[in-house]
Design a protein around this nucleic acid. Structure first.
Lengths: 139, 139
DNA sequence: TCAATATTTAGAATTATTATATTTTTGAAT
DNA sequence: ATTCAAAAATATAATAATTCTAAATATTGA
């Protein structure tokens, strides 16, 4: 898996982040599963690979990744911050029952922001909430 | 102001909420200022009118209003929940500097949710983040 | 009126996150 | 390789937002 390590190292480097073992593992986790995890989920998953890791390091790493544009936060109603390594424009759907967040494709041109003249728009998101097909059929 | 009281009472009744003095005052606050306040902001503002009010009552009232469809929460990156009494479809812009949340009009038809077939969509929102004109010109 | 129910309160508990101070790791210069 | 400084990671304390709990108060209906 020398390739993967090299890829992650390069990915961090391109975004101006010095590699460290934690950063590599966190990045690998975020890139390989596009599940919009919370900090706690990242921490829980990584405890197996890095038994000595601390929550603070996870928070620091995620905050750094945000600043450097490696991940972005997903605006949601919940109070846990969720992180997304897919920085392309897409929508998010949050299921009210299972809490899962789904991505969906949407044409960026559809979103007409003419009324935001004078504003500097750095991020935009489409957010929907309701029932996912699974939870809908379970009722 | 008998009119206002009657209006608020009726508004609550229509949404299946029994009126109480706290509920009336909270509703009045939410309807008269469309500022997407946090629970703490509502609490702070109401302490003057209702000196004995508790935070728990504010939280309870806002939660009840959400369930009954009187307000909805605004999905944001921040970790304080923000409430919006304007339930019509519109976009939100959050300023990264001053934290203020602005509404903007956007045509609902523009948002193409065809890819969410099989999902029950109960809420949708457009979220943007960046610099508001004020904070942009201050830099 | 009086019991049953709903609402509100104060404060404790919980959860998510951030801050702090110490230790460990890393990488350059010797 | 060894030393040293800077950066990163750690454990833990502190903070912030919210929720829970139990008691007090208010409201409603027989």
């Amino acid at each position: 898996m020398e390739n993967k390590t090299g890829y992650l190292r390069e990915y961090l480097h391109k975004h101006g982040v010095k590699p460290s073992s934690i950063r590599m593992v966190v990045l690998d986790y975020l890139l390989s599963r596009r599940t919009h995890p919370t900090a706690e989920e990242v921490y829980g998953a990584l405890c197996q690979e890095l038994p000595a890791v601390s929550r603070a390091s996870i928070y620091n790493t995620l905050e750094l990744f945000c600043q450097k544009g490696i991940v972005k936060t997903v605006p949601t109603d919940g109070r846990e911050t969720r992180y997304d390594a897919d920085r392309s424009f897409h929508g998010h759907f949050e299921c009210e029952v299972c809490g899962k967040i789904y991505d969906f494709r949407i044409d960026s041109d559809n979103v007409d922001l003419r009324e935001l003249e004078g504003f500097v728009v750095r991020e935009k998101d489409i957010y929907c909430r309701g029932l996912c097909p699974q939870c809908h059929s379970d009722q």
